[in-house]
Design a protein around this nucleic acid. Structure first.
Lengths: 193, 193
DNA sequence: CTCAAAAACGAACGTTCGTGCTTTTGTACA
DNA sequence: TGTACAAAAGCACGAACGTTCGTTTTTGAG
């Protein structure tokens, strides 16, 4: 009983590769022809799994959300709510930026949110929803941790980890991770008790 | 004597429009055909000004650097070196994000640096150089202001203003500008005397 | 073993991409 | 007024884009 769901497996393989390509070239630069060539299958065969490029893009966003949850959110679920959870999430995020085995093009959300911030449509909405979910979780945990302004806290945390991604991608100097961790230390130390 | 340098004027008009398009669709999404259509001129006529798409992209990056300097750096030159200069730069940056008359797609550098962080080549290098210049100026001013770690200071300042751009573009809630200004207040208040 | 459904394929479509070549237009100066 | 030169246009090209079609291969259930 080698493979139960052959079609679903292929689809998963397509999306895994699509994630890598999109983190480098964006969701517009993600091309059906190139994706098919890399997977050694035909354009039309690949295309049939999604029916349109937009559906492929949406499926890729969904797969990115899954991978992000597995790499960043779930490892942090062992930490207690509040400040420890916030630290665990931030650590997991920064760690997965330093790990080349994840997106070869850095944070998928940094790349695609900058790409789609001005393009209305379903893809924009899907990315915005994923980011809101993440920021909402940061805000929720900041509230539990006793932050006087959880929205502001979540914004600062988001900014510094995204800034580290941006600067590391462009400048290549890993010292930005130290900067980011120091800033996170300070942010967390300002929380009550 | 209506126009002295007709060719140069056309070129400047092309680049001004290219800046707007690129801030929305990126430097890859910037297309010679579309740019020509919007300016009501022929593809080939426009193309002749640059000779290649990459030259157009590089010229656009140069024009973006000029516009950025005019909108953000020069208005801040009236403020004294150090903390006041840093505040003036940050204020000018945030103000020009709120002004729709500048890039309709938000910060040009946020959009294009995310786009090109993994594409090696001359365009990447030009963007990286412009960002390094800006961050270098922040770092220099932080040093003058007496920051114990100017590199870290510059990183934090960069992260928070870029985070404001990113969140405002995607979420649309202008409260992030308040968040950013509060964070900048705190950063500056930590500088000696 | 059969056979229908699912999956993948190959070829072609209309369009747009960047880029080259040739020709027309406009303008400054002799 | 004629000429030289820069600017813009016109036209065509090969390649790649997303998409559609009809066909072939693979697969799992009866």
């Amino acid at each position: 009983m080698a493979t139960l769901a052959k079609g679903a497996d292929t689809r998963a393989a397509i999306l895994a590769r699509a994630l890598d390509l999109a983190s480098v070239d964006g969701l517009e630069g993600l091309t059906i022809g190139r994706l098919a060539k890399e997977l050694e299958m035909s354009k039309s065969g690949l295309f049939a799994h999604f029916g349109s490029k937009q559906e492929l893009q949406l499926a890729t966003v969904g797969a990115a959300a899954e991978r992000f949850r597995a790499a960043v959110i779930e490892p942090a679920l062992g930490a207690p709510d509040g400040a420890p959870r916030l630290r665990a999430i931030a650590d997991a995020y920064l760690a997965h930026l330093e790990d080349d085995d994840y997106y070869p093009g850095g944070c998928f959300w940094a790349a695609t949110s900058a790409e789609y911030d001005d393009r209305p449509g379903a893809v924009h909405d899907a990315i915005a929803a994923a980011l809101d979910t993440w920021l909402g979780e940061l805000e929720r945990q900041a509230g539990i941790a006793g932050s006087p302004d959880p929205g502001r806290f979540a914004f600062e945390l988001y900014s510094v980890v995204m800034g580290a991604n941006s600067r590391f991608r462009m400048g290549g100097d890993p010292i930005v991770f130290t900067y980011a961790r120091d800033t996170i230390d300070r942010l967390l130390s300002e929380l009550p008790d």
